[in-house]
Design a protein around this nucleic acid. Structure first.
Lengths: 146, 146
DNA sequence: CCGTATCCATTCCGATACTG
DNA sequence: CAGTATCGGAATGGATACGG
């Protein structure tokens, strides 16, 4: 029996997870956001088998999160680039990064998030109401639309 | 061969995904944030088999994202409650919800996120630098800490 | 009501070898 | 470089039946 599909769920969280809620997709998008574009570079960075990388890249391009375009460097190859839809996953990745920094420790080497311009740590990720207020857990709810 | 464990990864995104990057965990946390506490209520809401729900709840309590406490209503049962660590996943869920609203459409009924007080749509999720600036994709990077 | 215990199908993932 | 082909092991997920 297959996994339950959530792409028809009313809840946008469930639908989002149906698209990018698997182990590798967000890591591929993370690399793409750093500037990775080539198959071999994803492969080296992620250490996954080429087999699965192929499948994931195909899914992500199918979802229009990545697109396959002629390589910018003039070689005969192609490269994977983030679309706007993919780039809009930025807050998802950043909130995951901040949560991981604080709540998923490791003894080994670790990195943390800084802003590129000043090198200072990122302060946080805020949920903003339409009037500009910062919303906390419990101050939002979901309402039925259609 | 097992899935590659990412709990020793330097990247906090990878470590975060190692903990909560599976299909069901974030949906359980979502329900918990709405106030769901009881096994049967999670079960009804998620429509998954009790088998797996048990496993996931155990993992989440093991990770201290949920905790099992005596039921508040005086019954002999227990209930699952979010810890602070669990509640701090709020920005992750919200950014997923906003992404899903815009990028994972459905023909069926759908919900969207509003702030509880005024019922207005949530504006967005912002990444905030230490000096208060709002950061966009490409304006952050990861640096090695330890 | 809140789970556990089995059983089974599917999917995921990794390793390796091979191709244009 | 960028995949494809094949294999096998592992984890996931569902159905069902059962127990405290």
């Amino acid at each position: 029996m297959r996994r339950k599909r959530l792409n028809k769920a009313a809840c946008p969280i469930a639908r989002a997870l149906d698209v990018i809620g698997d182990w590798w997709s967000l890591l591929i998008v993370r690399d793409a956001m750093r500037g990775t574009t080539r198959f071999s570079d994803f492969h080296k960075s992620l250490g996954m088998s080429k087999n699965i990388l192929t499948r994931r890249l195909r899914t992500l391009t199918g979802q229009k999160i990545l697109e396959l375009v002629p390589a910018a460097d003039g070689t005969a190859y192609q490269e994977y680039r983030l679309t706007d839809k993919g780039r809009s996953l930025y807050p998802v990745l950043m909130s995951l990064a901040l949560w991981g920094q604080d709540n998923a420790p490791t003894n080994g080497p670790k990195s943390h998030l800084v802003d590129r311009e000043h090198g200072q740590p990122v302060r946080g990720v805020n949920v903003i109401a339409s009037d500009g207020r910062i919303l906390k857990a419990g101050e939002t709810r979901m309402v039925r639309t259609g």
